[in-house]
Simulated scan of single mutants.
Amino acid sequence: MFAKLIDKLKGTQAPAVKTPEIMGLRLGASFELDPLAIRLILDELTIDSCSPTQIIKAAGVVELDGTWVYRFYTDDDAWLQVVAEGGRGDEHVVDVKLFHFYDTLDVANQQAWDSLLKQEIGAESYQLQERSYNRVWTSAGDYHNPVHMSEKTYDVGGDYSVTDQFTMLFERELSDQRTESLFLSAEEKEEHAGYLSRSLVISTGITLTSSQLTIHG
């Protein structure tokens, strides 16, 4: 106890870790979804269910030349993504989407990894459960190289990991003129044991408006 007090007085105590936060969303916080907004389209979505109340268990952030992508991972096997452009304040938020993890596929070798990045992930369309999603990000050619993101993700204990992601966004129209998004992320991560793990993470989601989301700090 006294050693900690002396360290504090000397200014040697480690500063608190600043974890990602925006719109009141942060580690340990929770949010509620308008259940009616989900119920009206649930039969059309890839997911089978969606919890109306979700607790944030991890938080990540990606910085992309004046754009910040915040991701808040929940206890519903989901993640809320908030995109801010031109600044990190609430007033800079331009998009909010709720994604649920669909599947994570191991990438076994270099050949499979190269094929994923150069031939598959950036195609004009992607099929999932006999549903066709069209690529959102445009390209001069038929194929769009995946967009690289480096995400720093924190857990509730303050520990963090860094993951390189090669990503692509797709969407398909729903009956009420909304869309269901499909997010593909080919991910590389150096594990503690020293080896490089690779996987394809598939998630589907919907865009939320401010009236469909209530945040509890």
Rank of each mutant, 00 (worst) to 15 (best):
Gly157Pro: 05
Ala186Leu: 00
Tyr133Cys: 03
Ala186Gly: 06
His144Tyr: 07
Ala186Ser: 04
Phe166Ser: 02
Ser175Ala: 11
Leu182Ala: 09
Val162Tyr: 05
Phe183Pro: 10
Thr163Arg: 00
Asp164Ile: 01
Ala186Asn: 04
Phe183Gly: 11
Gln165Asp: 05
Asp176Pro: 02
Asn134Met: 13
Phe170Asp: 00
Leu196Asn: 12
Asp176Gly: 14
Ser150Ile: 02
Val136Ile: 05
Arg131Ser: 04
Glu190Thr: 09
His144Glu: 05
Ser175Glu: 12
Leu182Glu: 10
Ser185Thr: 03
Gly194Gln: 03
Asp159Gln: 06
Asp142Val: 13
Arg135Gly: 03
Asp155Ala: 04
Asp176Tyr: 05
Glu151Val: 02
Glu151Lys: 01
Val136Tyr: 14
Leu184Asn: 14
Thr138Leu: 10
Glu188Ile: 06
Asp176Ser: 11
Arg131Trp: 09
Leu169Gly: 00
Asn134Trp: 09
Leu174Ala: 09
Glu173Lys: 13
Glu180Thr: 01
Leu182Thr: 05
Leu184Glu: 05
Asp142Arg: 08
Glu187Leu: 07
Lys152Met: 11
Glu187Asp: 11
Phe166Ile: 02
Gln165Ala: 05
Glu188Thr: 14
Ser139Pro: 03
Tyr195Leu: 04
Val136Thr: 00
Glu188Ser: 10
Val136Trp: 11
Ala140Cys: 11
Thr167Glu: 07
Asp159Arg: 10
Val156Tyr: 13
Thr138Pro: 03
Asp155Arg: 00
Arg178Cys: 13
Phe170Leu: 01
Gly194Ile: 07
Glu173Asn: 13
Leu184Ile: 10
Arg172Cys: 01
Glu130Asn: 12
Gly194Ser: 06
Glu180Phe: 02
Val156Pro: 09
Asp159Asn: 04
Gln177Glu: 09
Phe170Ile: 08
Ser132Tyr: 15
Arg131Glu: 13
Ser175Cys: 12
Val136His: 13
Tyr160Lys: 03
Leu182Pro: 02
Glu151Pro: 01
Ser181Lys: 14
Tyr154Ala: 04
Leu196Lys: 09
Asp176Cys: 15
Leu196Glu: 15
Arg178Ser: 13
Thr163Met: 07
Asn134Phe: 06
Ser181Met: 15
Arg135Lys: 08
Gln165Phe: 06
Asp176Ala: 13
Tyr154Gly: 01
Leu169Tyr: 05
Arg131His: 13
Glu130Ala: 07
Glu173Arg: 09
Glu187Cys: 01
Tyr133His: 09
Lys189Cys: 02
Glu173Gly: 15
Thr153Asn: 05
Leu169Thr: 12
Ser181Asn: 11
Glu171Thr: 06
His148Pro: 00
Glu130Val: 07
Trp137Lys: 14
Ala193Thr: 10
Tyr195Thr: 07
Phe166Gly: 01
Asp155Lys: 00
Gly141Leu: 13
Tyr143Glu: 04
Met168Gln: 04
Tyr160Gly: 07
His192Leu: 15
Trp137His: 09
Gly141Thr: 06
Tyr160Ser: 06
Gly141Lys: 04
His144Trp: 15
Glu151His: 02
Val147Ser: 03
Phe183Thr: 11
Lys189Phe: 08
Arg178Pro: 14
Glu187Arg: 06
Asp164Leu: 13
Phe170Met: 05
Thr179Glu: 14
Gln177Trp: 07
Glu173Met: 08
Asp164Thr: 02
Phe170Ala: 01
Phe170Thr: 01
Ser161Ala: 14
Met149Pro: 00
Ser185Ile: 00
His148Val: 12
His144Val: 05
Leu182Ser: 04
His144Arg: 02
Val162Asn: 08
Thr167Asn: 00
Asp164Phe: 08
Glu188Val: 02
Ala193Pro: 01
Gly157Met: 15
Glu171Asp: 15
Phe166Tyr: 13
Arg131Val: 01
